[in-house]
Design a protein around this nucleic acid. Sequence first.
DNA 1: ACGTCCATGTAGAAAATCTACACGATGTAT
DNA 2: ATACATCGTGTAGATTTTCTACATGGACGT
Lengths: 304, 304
Amino acid sequence: MDVQRLELLRELADRGSVTAVALATHRTPSAVSQQLKVLEREAGLPLTQRQGRGLVLTDAGRALARSATDVAVSLAKATALWDEFRNQASGEVSLVTFPTAGQMLLPGVIKKLGADLVLNCADEDPELSDFPAFTAEYDIVLAHSMSGQLSWAGRGLTVVPLMTEPLDVGLPVGHPLADRVWVGPRDLVGETWIGVTDGYPFERILHAIEQEAGARLSMSQRFADLALIESFVIAGLGIALVPRYTSGGGQPGRLVLKPLRGIESERQIVALMRPDRAERLAVRTVIEELQAEAARVQQSHTEP
Amino acid sequence: MDVQRLELLRELADRGSVTAVALATHRTPSAVSQQLKVLEREAGLPLTQRQGRGLVLTDAGRALARSATDVAVSLAKATALWDEFRNQASGEVSLVTFPTAGQMLLPGVIKKLGADLVLNCADEDPELSDFPAFTAEYDIVLAHSMSGQLSWAGRGLTVVPLMTEPLDVGLPVGHPLADRVWVGPRDLVGETWIGVTDGYPFERILHAIEQEAGARLSMSQRFADLALIESFVIAGLGIALVPRYTSGGGQPGRLVLKPLRGIESERQIVALMRPDRAERLAVRTVIEELQAEAARVQQSHTEP
DNA sequence: ACGTCCATGTAGAAAATCTACACGATGTAT
DNA sequence: ATACATCGTGTAGATTTTCTACATGGACGT
């Protein structure tokens, strides 16, 4: 039984089409198809099945693909081990993030990394995209979820928590609530809100506020971009829920943040990885730096 | 990084020479040497080292070989999984045993196995040979050790206990002690003993008897073969320590067995395997049958 | 000193795997 | 309905990888 073939099956499970696997592994679709055929012949039972013009795995195929992950993990552990012997976290690591986390963490991380470890970053809009799906393409995926919510369970991905960031209420200077130490759900009814695009995780907290206060919030605008939201708040067009550590980057002093009490108001920032990639020494190094940087950010907001 | 090459490194760790690896993997020594060279070049650090006319692993090499085992295990699990899908424990399984265990267990086991699972058995003299070393050559190694003694720890082998067999005192019919229900160390001084060859595990118990009784035992002969020992006992030339379930096979009724009290007198019969081979479905099937047969033997000696 | 055993180079054979291209099936747009 | 794009899969040949056969040189035992 050949590992490369198993790996191909796993890629097929992750990416869903022969062409995608071929593209990802720098091969022609024909080569992939041939190898899968050999694997199937060796297995002695059908692993794939045509569906329309595409190809889906059978139950047996899925099971095999799952065990292929274990093989990949132990293999990655082996390579990591010998990287440790040479103690060089070399190579390239790719990463996607949603904008605010990237702005908060990445500059600090990249400065810490040695010259022989290249970190290729990209950003993706969190609402448009399925975070776990990116683990096929990128080594590390920075994602956020609300606390308690286990959005990424059960897919067999490695999840490393990086930080929990409070979500505060953002107010313009001079707002009646701006003198308060904290605000509660009842203080917030009657305000005009700048909301996030539908489906965005912050949504849940706004619903919780409504539930707690017993009234609907009036939502005038809906944006995805944080800087845009903030500019509206600063302009006095409404108030908004904003992440504590990443807000006010552009115009400091013109936005007032108030902790929200009575409601669990925070988001979890995590790193998602395919288990085998998580074992790579270079990846582990980056993760450690991400954790350190996250701790640093958190500390700098609590101490001064 | 290639798995086949890693596997070769592991074989080298197990077998100790390029030639042996080549022989075991049906290749020429040159091919093995070349692959190891490639692996070393990929690793970027020396994995092997010449010693005399042979080749030994460096620390890094040993570490890599160890992690290669994990890879082999997960790979074996994958193949086992798909064997389960076809539910066929097919293929061949090789086994070595020491004579008495083979005589006790193997006939029953082989009868239970299906026609598509071939069990190739061989026997080896336990005193001459290093049991763990056989795991390189055979899938399953039946070995015995005294209770409490962990002869096969720390080599990274899978150990499956099959049974604990009491070691009784074998007497000729008509012997003064033959009427007793059991015998103690003190009853046994003054007797003439038929002993086992030096280094044999039974040796320990004889020493324990001497220690307990406070006197040396007179040892007239030393044999390795159990049937030979028994024939001496039956002929009235002495008494001997014999395993309860395997003795008296040849001449029933002419040998009397008495339990030995006051001393832990039993041997542990175990199956030794390389971890990866232990995962194979066919191997697991044989192991299960071995356990069942062992239980059956044990039961048939306690009940009637 | 001699033969033996072992690992390792080299050259070419053998095997495995890939690319290029064609084909049929299946959706989608016009 | 027709034309077109997409997707997987065959086939033939090129490419790459890995093996064998044989030769070489060092280490050990007699």
